[in-house]
Nucleic acid binder design. Structure first.
Length: 862
RNA sequence: GCCCCGGUGGCGAAACGGGUAGACGCAACGGACUUAAAAUCCGUUGGCCGAAAGGCCGUGCUGGUUCGACUCCAGCCCGGGGCACCA
């Protein structure tokens, strides 16, 4: 063992040993408990950033820990390789997305390897590989057959200059990010997956995921959003045609307060009105501008225009005016809502603005009501008033009565309403999985036969920002109809990349099977025992994966319902955001390291180091490629080694907590590695040591041994149960101080030290595996530390005869007294009251009450 | 706007089921070693009062429950995440 700690030398050597031993190649083995430890696979953006290092270090430390618990561990890795950034890079640099993506994968794979993660690389996959996405296509066709996939129209952001569909991210303040053109909404045909058919099950099953964070389950439950509502219809006769206008409501008890209905700009009634009336037409045109994002719709000014059309109230027969509202979405519900200004805040504001009548129909405990100003309690549940036959009824009774009357007239019925909407998977983009359909002039839309799968994505195309390159590629487009053989055209839409990430964990368990999506190996490994990834995926990705797994189950591909047994949502690594926004054109982000910054919070300002001109502060946010605020860990690894980087990212913050990036403190982590190394070196230089003989240890030796075993128990609990690497590390650092202060060089003293160092090395081996391996060998072991079992704390070493308890007077800490371990209340009481510090505050007053928490504290109440 | 989470020293944090607030580390300061610096080692470090012993205050804000509240409840302020085409 060298005296100096040289990670640059140790780490490649140890990695080569693991490689030679095949340490991380996972094999199905029914004789051992399996443990599938999975981190969310990365998008190959170019370089790893600190969020990745944090995520994969947590996963690797856990995987190694579980391996030491005797589990057969699988830890795979792959690439979420389709997506928008590759197309943007292509537009910028003229490189094909495939080449850009694969170059990035090669670089990031090398980075991951240098960090020493115990990954089974033989199972590596990239979602842009045809042998992977073939099965997206295959299962999509099964979904079509089962009616889970269907076609309908959907609304997208349309850039009229580039003639391109834009992602929400590409719409900035209602304008296209490259062209600056005002974005329009456009209705186009899309494919949807019926996730709503699974809504009930996806919601109910959340209760059976006890090892998921509470907040994730709450978010999913709210997202799925079950509510009981009423579907009711307003009959009408317009332009000589009779019809009904259906709406959904969860507040049917307020239906007697309806004073208008609002329809979406794309609604058929709006079209009828627009044809007659120029002002309606102008408003409908205006509604087409702006983004389709929920957040924008919820915060924008609510506007409307009267159509001049009327429908009839389903219960009173009263005429109700029809308005077009910019806040009503065609793709959501029925594309129409009833307006109850009296008891709904948004409708109240709308009615005030346009002079529509406001009628109170709910009374909340007799609280005052005025149509002049909105008060929060107007929207609460209460009793019906001004509601004719329903007056006096409470929320539930009113809904029951109203639903019954509506049903009797054939104009409504109760219905369970879900907030969740079906999953639109069509993307008008090149770098994604082709949807396996062919459009034939004679036969219509025809599925690609299974034996012609995969529909391969041509990899040499370079997008230019306008439209989908697939639509311009004759080689891709032209195809014979599988049914009639006539000239036909391929579908050019590709799938949402969430499809790719909805089942990759199954494929890791059944890699390289050309004949089937999954096989019996997946039955061995699935479900994932521990899934680890960013909290930002708490809803969409995890919900889609849960849905997809159920579809696979219903197709007979798996017997499990839930893909992820235990979930750890890693907190994000944040960094500052700096940008410049030119008056026209694309927003430009600058890396925090390029900015000279001053001040805090709202007062924070900065200038670009390169030109001295101001840049705008965008607050703090997640590290992302698009905002150019990622931190490349490469410099850290090169300077300090992988172990220090790993130790550092785990040492300060619990895994599920957000952290603001700062590399201050990494020196401290490196210092600790050097100190520990030196301690082991100094011990080993003294020659071989025996096993400690517990019976003959002196007091100091026994105390040290107790500290070692206490730390061992704590570290095992912190990692195994609590997933708190930071407190585990703190416990080891505390122990290190005791060890370095222990100067006993007698044979027994050295024996205690040998045991202590071996245990410390094993405790740290999941976190700093390279250094741990080198020290393990130096301590005289021929084996690989990675194959060692997690040591058990010796109960005999933990025994303590006296303990210190805290004494409070009226809840304030006044003294600490020593009592025998296991002392009862009488003994503790006597010891507490005898203490002069306590007596001073009791000062002869009678003790009204005494609370004793055994082994912890006494509280004297006077 | 809606849903979820967070706020504790100069900084990152700990306190696990209501029971010692600030473990562990960073930074800073003082000291040892050195011709000097770096590195290393030792010590101090929430605020206020005090020579000390010790005392008082203190976990975003305002209230409440409790013998006892960082922890539970109500209301607010600030920060972060998600909002269905970023991944």
């Amino acid at each position: 063992m060298k005296e100096r700690y040289e990670p640059g030398e140790i780490e490649p050597q140890v990695q080569a040993e693991w490689e030679a031993a095949g340490s991380f190649v996972a094999r199905e083995d029914a004789s051992r408990p399996k443990y599938y430890c999975l981190c969310m696979f990365p998008y190959p953006s170019g370089k790893l950033h600190m969020g990745h290092v944090r995520n994969y270090t947590i996963g690797d430390a856990l995987a190694r820990f579980m391996r030491m618990q005797g589990c057969n561990v699988l830890q795979p890795m792959g690439w979420d390789a389709f997506g928008l950034p590759a197309e943007n890079a292509a537009i910028e640099n003229g490189v094909a997305p495939a080449k850009w993506t694969r170059d990035n994968i090669a670089h990031m794979k090398a980075q991951l390897k240098s960090l020493g993660f115990g990954i089974d690389w033989s199972r590596e996959l990239a979602t842009c590989d045809a042998d992977y996405y073939k099965w997206n296509q295959w299962l999509f066709l099964r979904m079509l057959e089962r009616g889970i996939a269907y076609q309908a129209t959907g609304t997208v952001n349309w850039d009229p200059v580039d003639q391109t569909v834009l992602a929400n991210e590409q719409v900035i303040d209602g304008r296209g990010w490259r062209t600056g053109a005002t974005v329009e909404k456009r209705e186009i045909p899309m494919y949807y997956l019926r996730i709503t058919d699974y809504a009930e099950e996806l919601l109910a099953a959340l209760d059976r995921l006890p090892d998921w964070p509470e907040r994730v389950r709450t978010m999913q439950a709210n997202w799925i959003g079950r509510s009981e509502g009423v579907n009711l219809s307003f009959p009408y006769e317009i332009a000589g045609t009779k019809g009904t206008l259906p709406v959904f409501t969860t507040r049917a008890d307020t239906v007697m307060g309806v004073t208008y209905v609002a329809v979406a700009a794309e609604h058929p009634l709006a079209a009828i009105a627009a044809a007659r009336d120029g002002s309606v037409r102008a408003f409908v045109d205006e509604c087409r501008r702006g983004s389709v994002m929920e957040a924008d719709l919820a915060t924008m000014e609510k506007k409307g225009v009267a159509t001049g059309l009327v429908v009839r109230h389903p219960l009173t027969g009263e005429e109700v005016p029809v308005w077009v509202g910019n806040y009503v979405l065609m793709g959501y519900g029925e594309g129409a809502v009833m307006g109850v200004p009296g008891d709904d805040e948004r409708d109240f504001a709308f009615a005030r603005k346009y002079g529509l009548p406001i009628r109170q129909v709910i009374d909340v405990e007799g609280r005052p009501y005025s149509t002049v100003a909105w008060q929060d309690w107007y929207a609460e549940h209460g009793r019906c008033v001004n509601s004719g036959p329903y007056d006096g009824l409470g929320y539930e009774a009113a809904i029951d009565a109203i639903a019954k009357d509506l049903e009797a007239r054939g104009l409504g019925r109760k219905q369970v309403v879900w907030r969740l909407r079906d999953w639109g998977i069509s993307r008008q983009r090149y770098w994604g999985c082709p949807i396996p359909l062919i459009h034939c002039p004679a036969c219509g839309t025809v599925p690609v036969p299974d034996d012609q799968l995969p529909v391969r994505l041509p990899e040499e195309l370079v997008p230019d920002g306008s439209g989908n390159p697939l639509a311009k590629s004759k080689a891709f487009l032209d195809v014979a109809c599988p049914k009639c053989g006539a000239a036909a055209r391929r579908e050019t839409d590709t799938m949402d990349t969430f499809v790719d990430s909805s089942w990759y964990f199954f494929r890791f368990a059944s890699p390289k099977n050309d004949g089937a999506m999954v096989d019996e190996r997946a039955a061995y490994w699935m479900p994932v025992d521990q899934y680890i990834g960013g909290i930002e995926h708490a809803i969409l990705h995890l919900l889609y994966a849960r849905f997809w797994t159920r579809v696979m189950r219903d197709c007979g591909l798996t017997s499990i319902d839930e893909p992820f047994q235990r979930l750890l949502t890693q907190g994000m690594v944040l960094n500052e955001i700096w940008f410049r926004k030119p008056s026209s054109g694309r927003i430009v982000y600058h890396h925090p390291s390029e900015v000279e910054a001053r001040g805090e919070g709202a007062a924070r300002t900065g200038v670009l180091k390169s030109d001295g001109q101001p840049v705008e502060y965008g607050g703090i946010g997640t590290m992302s490629k698009s905002r150019r605020n990622g931190v490349d860990p490469q410099a850290l690894i090169e300077r300090y080694g992988a172990d220090t980087a790993r130790f550092f990212v785990l040492s300060d913050v619990p895994p599920d907590q957000t952290c603001l990036w700062s590399d201050e403190g990494v020196e401290g982590a490196f210092r600790f590695m050097k100190q520990l190394w030196k301690l082991v070196h100094g011990h080993v230089a003294g020659g071989a040591a025996a096993r400690p003989d517990a019976a003959t240890l002196d007091r100091a030796q026994r105390d040290l041994r107790r500290q070692v075993h206490q730390a061992l128990a704590k570290v095992g609990d912190d990692i195994g149960r609590r997933r708190m690497f930071n407190t585990a590390i703190a416990a080891v650092r505390e122990l290190y101080r005791a060890l370095s202060a222990f100067q006993d060089r007698s044979p027994q003293g050295r024996a205690v030290m040998q045991e202590a160092l071996e245990l410390v090395v094993l405790m740290l081996s999941p976190i700093v595996p390279h250094a741990a391996q080198a020290m393990w060998r130096a301590l005289g072991h021929a084996s690989l530390a990675v194959d060692e079992r997690w040591p058990q704390a010796d109960p005999a070493a933990l025994v303590q005869d006296t303990i210190e308890i805290v004494v409070q007077v009226n809840g304030k800490l006044r003294a600490r007294v020593a009592v025998a371990a296991g002392a009862d209340e009488a003994v503790a009481r006597e010891a507490a009251l005898a203490d002069p510090g306590v007596a001073k505050f009791v000062a002869g007053q009678p003790v009204r009450k005494l609370i004793y928490v055994p082994g912890k504290l006494v509280n004297v109440v006077v």
